[in-house]
């Protein structure tokens, strides 16, 4: 693991909501690094701050304080987004959600290609890369199908293809296996692992699902906004017996 290059570095991220009686500290002084090519699971009970951390890393919400670097580029400085949010999202980030969240009026292929076209990649190049990644994820044969014509697992593969096509530095996944059975859940986690290795992306998976934790490289725990990255949790501690 030590040979992997740091892709993400967070320093002192905190997030406060409300004030007075309604004050809540959702995230407390979180600092960590994610390396390129590794898959990290973020575990914690409901309300522990998982989603808050995810939205900050995805530049959806700003932290109250803290800094964030993606590669060598500082994207959050003293709690403020320091770069064009849209540029960073298009070029550095990928998202996968519990539901596939595909755009219903686009075909599977268009849903994936959209990311490149939003980044003004030429249509020819975009189509080529879309075909490659969809073929790699074994979903190219459903390229022309509308999302509602795909099974849950196929939709999730399309969503993963969409998240990976821009070769992001950081792939954020929010409960990506919650709606899938064990076999499909493991399949998806396997795809993350492959993507991390082959495409050199850091993958942070927020999950309640312990069934595929043996496929992640590290496990972070979060509770009451406090992130524990040092405890070196083992999958077996969460009841995961084997692959």
């Amino acid at each position: 693991m030590n040979t992997l290059k740091p892709a993400i570095r967070a320093q002192g991220l905190s997030k406060d909501y409300g004030e007075g009686n309604t004050f809540v500290r959702a995230l407390q002084d979180c600092s960590f690094e994610l390396n390129a090519g590794e898959v990290v699971a973020l575990l914690g009970p409901s309300g522990s701050g998982k989603s808050t951390l995810l939205t900050i890393l995805g530049l959806i919400n700003e932290p109250t304080t803290g800094d964030l670097w993606i590669g060598d580029s500082q994207v959050i400085e003293a709690g403020k987004v320091a770069q064009d949010v849209n540029d960073v999202r298009r070029q550095e980030l990928g998202f996968v959600f519990q539901r596939s969240n595909l755009i219903p009026f686009l075909s599977a292929e268009e849903n994936v290609r959209l990311v490149l076209e939003l980044d003004e990649i030429s249509p020819r190049e975009a189509k080529k890369r879309t075909k490659e990644i969809m073929a790699a994820l074994e979903i190219w044969d459903r390229a022309d199908n509308a999302p509602n014509k795909l099974s849950g697992g196929q939709q999730q593969r399309v969503a993963i293809a969409r998240a990976l096509i821009n070769e992001p530095s950081l792939l954020l996944a929010d409960e990506p296996t919650a709606a899938l059975d064990k076999s499909r859940g493991r399949q998806v986690m396997g795809l993350f692992q492959t993507a991390a290795r082959e495409r050199n992306a850091a993958v942070l998976v927020v999950t309640h699902d312990h069934r595929a934790l043996d496929l992640v490289d590290r496990i972070f725990m979060i509770e009451d906004g406090l992130l524990d990255t040092e405890s070196q949790f083992k999958p077996s501690e969460f009841g995961v017996i084997g692959k």
Binding site: G58, V85, N86, D87, V88, Q91, F95, P104, F105, L118
Partner: peptide, 18 residues
């Protein structure tokens, strides 16, 4: 009707003009 798709487009980094 497509506000969810619009939110998703924003998340994917679509520029406002798109």
């Amino acid at each position: 009707d497509k506000i969810h798709s619009i939110a998703l487009l924003k998340l994917l980094g679509a520029k406002p003009q798109v």
